[in-house]
Amino acid sequence: MLPPPIAIRVATEWLAARARWQPLEVGFWIVAFAAIWLFPDRHLILTEIAWLGLFALSLDLILGYAGIISLGHAAFFGLGAYTAALLAKYEIINEPVLALLVAGLAAMALGFVTSFLVLRGSDLTRLMVTLGVALLLRELANRLGWLTGGADGLQGVSIKPVLGMFRFDMFGHTGYAYSLIVLFILFLIARRLVNSPFGLSLLSVKGNPLRASAIGISVDGRLIAIYTVAAGFAGIAGALLAQTTSFASLEVFSFDRSADLLLVLIIGGAGYLYGGLIGAIIFKFMQDYLSALTPQYWPFWIGLVLVVIVMVGRDRITSWTAPFRRIASHLNWRALARHVAASSSERR
């Protein structure tokens, strides 16, 4: 027996409301793209925000949507950075977009392999294992000095024009437009993904893995999948860094980078995709301002912010971002009212 069509349409509407674009979101991207023409003198920092935002978005996919705590997400970022830089330096792939894809795929491959390490164990073991993987890669890059330049970093990288047309300049104009477009495309993919049945199943795995498997969801399979995808995103973020700065150094693998990343995501709030982007904006401008005051003691302020956020409570800190989140119940009710009206007019 089928339920009445009105009920089905209301239910459809409710489900679809999760994925509907909010006016604030549209505004966010309009401003981001307008910045290409509006703030040409800020393009360097905006570029950094773009790749940091992408990196944080990637962490959000595993932390906010799958509940995996990682202290070594820089492993994928670093691999992406070195891949892109090496491809350019040895002129293996000259076209940046193609190199970006290869870097992303390399990071995905690493993500897939290491995902099996985070399937089991407590938060602490996951934390240690992810940290260990990042440290291993750092050590590897350090030891392979003939290839990577070791502790001096990979110098003498020159990046060819994007698509053979747009040359990177020292003011970051091309860099920002390029990074922003990459970020936007990957954001759209992530947005699709989290609003899909697959994304919903991730939330179920995070919320209650026991029940998720009891309704036929392969918990391990979902974790492997999202970890792999997120690693690819992080790799592309790292590749963007390498391409826009023509440089890669051991620092891309560092613990500080993974820890900063957690802060970025936490400032913005995890689990709704914009957290990483908003966090990246706040973090970069904060860094810009505070390290201008005391460059050496910048870590102190990061630490203070972390401690304060935890003491005050993460939810309270990020409550102002609520309009970006999908809890917009008034919108659902309006949709319901619209449909009731529509169906009653149909009957007449």
Binding site: A16, A19, R192, N195, S196, P197, G199, L200, I217
Partner: peptide, 13 residues
């Protein structure tokens, strides 16, 4: 269809 990642939830009547 649990692995469908390209389709929005609720798009199958």
């Amino acid at each position: 269809q649990g692995l469908d990642w390209w389709r929005i939830v609720g798009s199958r009547p």
